[in-house]
Design a binder for these strands. Structure first.
Lengths: 224, 224
DNA sequence: TTTTCATTAAGGGTTTCCCCTTCTTTATAT
DNA sequence: ATATAAAGAAGGGGAAACCCTTAATGAAAA
């Protein structure tokens, strides 16, 4: 139902990319498909921010890697001045690792340069409607980042900690000292020390701080 | 180019949902659009696993909330027995919080029940082609989970750490001792101690371990 | 020009941590 | 039934961390 009707033909768009040919291609696409109107183009973040002095677009399609002022800086600055501008980031494969920064900066979408016409159209439409659009590739990167803890279970098994040791680790990771833990568990500080020593040996760390860092890094503790 | 041609018409699909009407709807959709062939249906995870004894599908479209054996258990069991089955999870709004479990279990996609025909078709096609498909809504949930650290920047500002203190914090969070840090920065251990003391005061923590935990918890350090 | 502030440095005392060793109790096994 | 091991408890000593105070230097501000 939405597929064949022109999307917001009055949507004012600025293209920001340091490759004129690439800008030309996207401009043609946007205008042929009646997605919106390209009111200006910029070759880098600086040029774009200068343009903002005279005209404020509804939407910006922004490259990441550009000379002088890059896509992230331009995004941050532009949204500081005009929080309502919708910014769609054009990302290359490999640029994904910086996604959080753009999301934090307030970018509304993230799409790969290798995306097809339909995907670009879909992304622009969603963003104009106030939604967000993020490429599946980006999602896969994020999920990959999240999946790492899954492999840790093997480590957890190989460490073979007993309940006392797990409890100790939990308490140590809350920043409690040996004496404080002794008070909680109602055992002598010297006994607590013995448990900690065993943890140091099992994890091959050399002091409590190292042990706590090891536990957090390897997600042996959920809260701390 | 891919839009108007039938997608793998021989793709054998099993539908698993405890609402017969909903199954009927999806079945009609799949067959009318020549997406594939629905070879069987199941009203819950148990029924589905029983079906697997006799016929192995290429793909499964699976509800999460079902009686007896739920979607997660069914997904885990099925992929244990037949790792090549592609499973697309049908999620309700609010079920998003469990996404990691399904991803860990090996589900290839995640789509909202409110999704339209095009999105379902798109998801099925991608998954059959060996790719993944995750709904934008799920992505937004994940990003929301990741975005929490964004609020911390205010804290970072209020702490007002200078370069030396930031450097110190970075090194302390790698588990280095005062003396080790002194060797790296080429300053007296007593000086380093002074910096750490200032960090303890600024962060209102009572020892190095507390300081490091504070820094990690509030994402003042990126690596450790 | 003097003041203020940040940086670097150090001495000394207290506490906590870390390591080595010892001892008892409770399982587990042969 | 007794050897062997594992878990629990604790002492002593040295090292590192922690806390408080003092102070020289240089840069920025009044």
């Amino acid at each position: 139902m939405k597929k064949d009707q022109p999307l917001s033909p009055n949507c004012k768009i600025i293209l920001v990319d340091d490759h004129p040919l690439y800008r030309e291609g996207i401009k043609l696409l946007i205008e042929m498909e009646h997605i919106g109107e390209v009111i200006a183009e910029a070759g880098n973040g600086k040029e774009f921010l200068d343009l903002l002095e005279y005209q404020v677009p509804d939407m910006v399609i922004m490259d990441i890697d550009m000379p002088i002022v890059d896509g992230l800086q331009a995004t941050q600055k532009a949204l500081e001045l005009h929080p309502d501008i919708k910014i769609l980031i054009l990302s290359m494969h490999g640029d994904n690792k910086y996604y959080t920064r753009f999301i934090d900066a307030g970018a509304k979408g993230f799409i790969l340069k290798t995306a097809g016409k339909e995907e670009l159209e879909n992304a622009i439409q969603k963003i104009i409607n106030g939604e967000s659009y993020f490429s599946q590739d980006l999602l896969l990167t994020i999920i990959h980042d999240l999946k790492v803890p899954n492999q840790i279970s093997k480590l957890e098994l190989s460490l073979d900690l007993n309940d006392r040791e797990k409890e100790m680790l939990q308490l140590l990771c809350k920043g409690l000292s040996i004496v404080e833990i002794a008070d909680i568990i109602h055992l002598s500080p010297k006994t607590i020390e013995g448990y900690r020593t065993k943890l140091l040996i099992k994890t091959e760390t050399k002091n409590t701080l190292g042990l706590v860092l090891f536990a957090i890094k390897n997600k042996l503790v959920t809260e701390f």
